[in-house]
Structures are given as C-alpha cells and as structure tokens.
C-alpha cells in the first residue's frame, strides 16, 4: 500500500464577469491528475507557469477546494477531512509556500510565526519550545537575533527560509515544497537542498517538490511529473525524463535550460528558436483539437506519456 494516493484530482475555478457577475467561463487549473507517493521518496512536479502546480499542492493539503477526485492517506480516504484543524493529516503534511511573504501574518514576530505550529501540534514546555525554535533557525542558517523581527524586515530569500523552518517545525511526514529555493541564491540553495536531503534520510520524509528549475529537480527527485494546462504530459523516473524524454513539451523544457557561458548567447538563442519552431510544427500530434493533453499511456513500468495513437 502506498503512503499517499491522489486519484483523478480536479480543481476548477469559475470565472465571473459581465453585467450580472455571472459565471462566464471556467479555469481547469487541475484537470484529472493521478499520483502515488511512497515513503521517503521525492516527487518532482515541473511545468509551465500557470499549469496548475501550486493548485495541486494546495488542494492536497486542503487549502483549495477539490472539484472532484480523492485523496488517500495511509490507506484512509481523507478527501473530506483535510481541513480539520488538529487532525493527524494536518500535522503530518506541511507546505512550503511559493509566496512566503503573503503566507506570513505581517503583524506577528518571527518567534510567534515559528511557534504557532509547535503550539498547535506538539506539547512542549516553554523552554523546549525555545530550544526547538533555535534549532530551526540554525537549520536554515539564520541567527537568533531575528526572533523579534517582523516579516517585512527580511529580504526575499530570508523570508523563504523562515517558511522552510516553519514547515519542518513539527517533524512532518510529508512536505509539499512549492518552489522552495527559487528565491534563494545558489549557496543558500545548496544549504537548503542538502538539509532537505539530510532530514529525508533521517526521518524518511516524502517530498512533493514543485519547481521550474530542471537542474534542481534533477538533483532532488526520484520521480518526475511534467504538467501542462492542468494535466500531466509525461511522468517517469529521473532517468526516463532526462535521458529519454518523449513528449514534445518535455523536450522543449529540457532544451531551454540556460547555461553560464556568455560567449554562446547567440548560438543558444538560435537553438531555442529552432526547438520552438519544431514545437509549433509538431505540437498537433501531442494535443487534441481543443489543445487538450491526451490521457497518459504507459510505455514502460515507470514511464508514461500523453500521446494520441501508438508510439
């Protein structure tokens, strides 16, 4: 039995407008997503901006209403209990938010922001609580003199680190990490990624790792899903995706990875244009007449691709 299972998850938003503010359209932010998580593994969720990654993450932890679909956690259907404040699910599954700034109450000090989950879920004495908070700060490389500060007094990267400290505060079993390092410079990025791996080895944590950075995803993830307009175009092991990409969208993503040679700027631009042309030419084979991604088909034990007809 897998640790967690997501079945045919859908999150659709109505769009209102017009004179009577009626529903005139729908956004299919998440449109039929199925995933399975094992303990101790890292799952990457990659895809274009606006493809539904954050919505998927927020729906799993219960911050977004699910239109249809089910979530099983340790064998139990938790679809409708995700929002119970003090349930085990709520303690075990934590999220690092993409937008760390708006996920923190601007009127609370760091001390209280970090203490909140601890007070909710762990029964610690004041002294133990202090100790835990100091540990957390050390983990994300910040000094104790930040405890009395407010969120606006921090730089973007510092806020992101506080968000990470808050997510790990209560020893969760799974962390949904939404772009956890994209606001961080490389050195801090490395510290945080190393730390995430360390606690994973130590506590058998599972990660759903949302990122648009294919370098980081490759470094972190065992299994990767590529998302496009609310659906998966391809899923597979790291090896499947990086060595043997099948879907035209995956190939396009992989070809655009920047590298750090200022000399080859022009050359890379030409390559990008070429891939882009190919993408425009070939894409009709990969999307149906409404531009919708086809259902996934297995092409090996681990590798699935969304394509029409045979491959």
């Amino acid at each position: 039995m897998s640790f967690m299972q997501i079945n045919d998850l859908n999150v659709h938003y109505p769009i209102r407008g017009g004179f009577f503010n009626t529903v005139i359209d729908k956004v299919y932010a998440v449109d039929g997503v199925t995933m399975e998580f094992e303990k101790g593994k890292t799952y990457g969720l990659v895809g274009e901006s606006g493809s539904g990654k954050s919505t998927t993450g927020k729906a799993i932890i219960g911050l977004e209403k699910i239109t249809s679909g089910q979530i099983f956690y340790e064998g139990e259907d938790v679809t409708n209990q995700r929002r119970n404040r003090n349930s085990a699910y709520n303690k075990d599954i934590q999220m690092i938010f993409q937008d760390s700034h708006s996920s923190m109450n601007p009127r609370k000090r760091v001390l209280d922001i970090l203490a909140e989950p601890i007070r909710n879920f762990m029964k610690l004495s004041d002294q133990e609580e202090r100790k835990r908070i100091k540990e957390l700060l050390a983990i994300v490389g910040m000094s104790e003199d930040v405890l009395l500060k407010y969120p606006h007094e921090f730089s973007g990267g510092q806020k992101q680190r506080l968000g990470i400290a808050r997510a790990v505060a209560c020893n969760p079993k799974m962390i949904i990490a939404d772009e956890p390092v994209s606001a961080l410079d490389l050195s801090v990025q490395a510290q945080v990624l190393n730390f995430m791996k360390d606690i994973q080895t130590e506590y058998g944590l599972t990660y759903l790792f949302i990122s648009h950075d294919l370098g980081v995803v490759k470094h972190m993830c065992d299994h990767i899903s590529i998302m496009y307009k609310g659906r998966f175009v391809e899923t597979g092991t790291r090896h499947d995706i990086y060595r043997d990409p099948q879907h035209v969208y995956t190939k396009r993503l992989l070809s655009a990875i920047p590298n750090i040679e200022p000399e080859s700027r022009l050359e890379r631009k030409l390559i990008r244009q070429k891939v882009e042309e190919n993408y425009q030419k070939e894409q009709h084979q990969y999307y149906d007449e409404h531009g919708k991604v086809y259902p996934l088909k297995s092409i090996s034990d681990t590798h699935m691709v969304a394509m029409s007809g045979g491959i």
């Binding site: 274009e48 901006s49 973007g156 994209s182 606001a183 648009h212 294919l214 993503l253 655009a256 920047p258």
Partner: peptide, 13 residues
C-alpha cells in the same frame, strides 16, 4: 528585482 525567479526556462527566455 528578480524578474524571472518564478518562471520556467522557456518563459524566462
């Protein structure tokens, strides 16, 4: 200020 941090590589380009 960090104009493309939240963007994937194709859109960043």
């Amino acid at each position: 200020d960090e104009p493309t941090t939240a963007l994937d590589v194709t859109i960043q380009a």
